[in-house]
């Protein structure tokens, strides 16, 4: 379902397997009375693609994002992350997959209060045997620099503004070098200037690093800046709009 226009924005990626793929994804929630939250979602997101997910509150956006990020298990259907099927993986394997291939940004920063900004960025890398500690530190410093908060690495989360906190959490999500970033309302708690900064960072990541980004947002102007906008209602995809600036210029 990847459009030719999106493919033009990332020509090499279009030929490869999808970064993320949802197959007949169904999710029921509720303890006694089960409610169907997602009704069979089919979706493929190409490498290097920037996708936004919109829809009314309660339409299932977060639920979909958690499933795509292997944080949650579908009632039925499958999620493939860079071609790896997650349906048969146990918790440990799914955790490892998240730790290696995915980065998450949430509405709240989820920074650990006991650690400095720099340490917060390092912590996800600490559990990986393939990244030496010195490497982890160097990468974290580089990413913080890149996001314009290099001089704030020694501060505790409480000593940072909301926008700075969110930038640290983006740094944490990308420092270990995943190719996929999943963001659930990353600008939801920020003022327009800080929100704009986050969007700018996302666009840079897509453009310069070829990252795949899926961003849930309530802000129509941000949603339109993605290459595709997936609109949900009551657990179904009702519309896929293409309208990223890149597309416009290509047209």
């Amino acid at each position: 379902m990847t459009s030719a226009i999106a493919a033009a924005a990332a020509p090499a990626a279009a030929l490869a397997a999808p970064s993320l793929e949802a197959r007949a994804l169904v999710r029921d929630l509720g303890d006694e009375v089960k409610t169907r939250i997602l009704h069979g979602i089919d979706l493929a997101i190409a490498p290097g693609e920037f996708v936004s997910v919109t829809g009314p509150s309660g339409s299932g956006k977060s639920t979909l994002l958690y499933l795509l990020g292997a944080l949650d298990r579908p009632t039925s259907g499958d999620v493939l992350i860079e071609g790896v099927s997650t349906v048969g993986l146990d918790d440990r394997a799914r955790g490892a997959l998240r730790g290696e291939r995915l980065g998450f940004v949430f509405q709240f920063h989820f920074l650990l209060p006991e650690f400095t900004a720099l340490e917060n960025v390092i912590i996800p890398m600490l559990r990986r045997r393939d990244i030496p500690r010195a490497d982890a530190r160097a990468r974290a410093l580089a990413v913080l620099d890149q996001l314009g908060i290099g001089e704030l690495g020694g501060r505790r989360p409480t000593q940072l503004s909301g926008g700075q906190q969110q930038r640290v959490s983006i740094a944490r999500a990308i420092a270990h070098g995943p190719r996929i970033l999943l963001a659930d309302e990353p600008t939801g708690n920020l003022d327009s200037a800080a929100g704009e900064a986050v969007l700018g960072i996302f666009e840079t990541l897509v453009r310069d690093r070829g990252m795949t980004i899926v961003m849930v947002t309530h802000e129509p102007s941000y949603a339109r800046r993605a290459q595709r906008e997936i609109r949900l209602r009551d657990g179904r995809i009702v519309e896929i709009a293409t309208g990223a600036p890149a597309t416009v210029t290509t047209r």
Binding site: G69, A96, R98, G99, F104, F110, I123, R127
Partner: peptide, 11 residues
Amino acid sequence: DIALLKSVGYG
């Protein structure tokens, strides 16, 4: 904090 650790790969 535990949720965050788990989402970034801690088991």
